[in-house]
């Protein structure tokens, strides 16, 4: 499957990467070239093969429901890009009611 310019613009949007027209054209070529090397996989019969998502057996370990100290507000402030009254501050989303579409 060759990557189209539209694909590149779509995934750049999904990945929140601003790319200009020229870069979009270059990336269309680069990604198509790289993905052409992946086609070999389509010839492998994996019908009866289970996927490896994580190496090693056993279930995930569980932690007891007990509190541990977090990061001090001072430490957060020292790394924060922009803070006010203890809040992280970001530019307003164009359509802020979209906040009700986020999260869980």
């Amino acid at each position: 499957m060759a990557v189209t310019r539209e694909d590149v613009l779509h995934i750049a949007e999904l990945a929140r990467l601003g790319i200009d027209a020229t870069r979009a054209d270059e990336l269309t070529k680069e990604l198509s070239a790289i993905l052409s090397h992946m086609e070999v996989l389509s010839q492998v019969d994996t019908a009866a093969v289970s996927a490896t998502t994580i190496v090693g057996a056993g279930g995930t370990p569980l932690r007891p429901d007990v509190g541990v100290p977090g990061v001090s507000s001072a430490a957060i402030a020292s790394i924060a890009s922009a803070m006010r009254d203890g809040f992280f501050i970001v530019p307003r989303l164009a359509t802020h009611e979209d906040s009700s579409e986020n999260g869980a």
């Binding site: 006010r84 203890g86 809040f87 501050i89 970001v90 530019p91 307003r92 989303l93 906040s99």
Partner: peptide, 8 residues
């Protein structure tokens, strides 16, 4: 805050 969003 006007024009900004506060994150908690």
């Amino acid at each position: 805050y006007p024009g900004e969003t506060a994150i908690d």
